[in-house]
Amino acid sequence: MRTMTFKVFRYDPDDGRDPHFQTFAVETVKGMTLLEALYWIMENKDPSFAFRSSCREANCGSCAMHINGSYGLACRTQVENLKPPITIRPLAHLQVLKDLVVDMKPFFDNFKAIKPYLIPGEDPPEKEYYQSVEDRKKIDHHVDCIMCGSCYGSCPVAYGDPKYLGPHALLKALRFVDDSRDGAADERLAMVASEFGVFRCHTIFNCQLVCPKDLNPTGAISKLKNKIVVKKFPFMKIFVKT
């Protein structure tokens, strides 16, 4: 057992105080995750402390937050790997509702904007849509995204413009463009080529760095860029890799 100092972002719209940091001394045990530590604070120190979590096993994406200088999932972070004082902030670029809980609406609005569902190109087949193993491999990577918002919080472009689709939405856009069963690739490419799409990306690599699932939104965005360029100027195929 070891006592560790936590500096936690606090904000309650009802108590009239400005956002501030509150320090807690948390008794940690070996193998304790950061999420457990937050629960410990809630149970032992301050029951009004608010944060989101659900699955506790890096599957639902609820518990993403800013932990000691980087974004990540609280349930996947071991406290003993963190350097005290452990500073916890909510996800950036989204409005704080209370403590570590942010309003994810703009985030999911951007996600919805790219039509994150299959749009079949042809009439439905008699049985299921067939997808070969090779074709499935193409989207293997992107389907793992759990929409936790780490990439969105880490993206400086999202600060400058809330309408910017964001790494999460663009990664998902590529997921459907690359899907052999999807028939709306052109429509999707036109959508992400818009003012708030891929060309807003400044290639900062933060999204790639923070992704708790080790996905590569930066690469997805550059792939989409290349696809758009080749669609418009087919001769560019010799220069860019799609």
């Binding site: 880490s154 400086p156 933060n206």
Partner: peptide
């Protein structure tokens, strides 16, 4: 807003990418 945001971003994301973006 831009100045404040840039400062925040550099503080919250002290990564190579953020600094090279800023310098760029």
């Amino acid at each position: 807003y831009v100045f404040k945001g840039t400062k925040e971003e550099l503080k919250l994301n002290p990564n190579v990418g953020t600094f090279s973006w800023f310098l760029h």
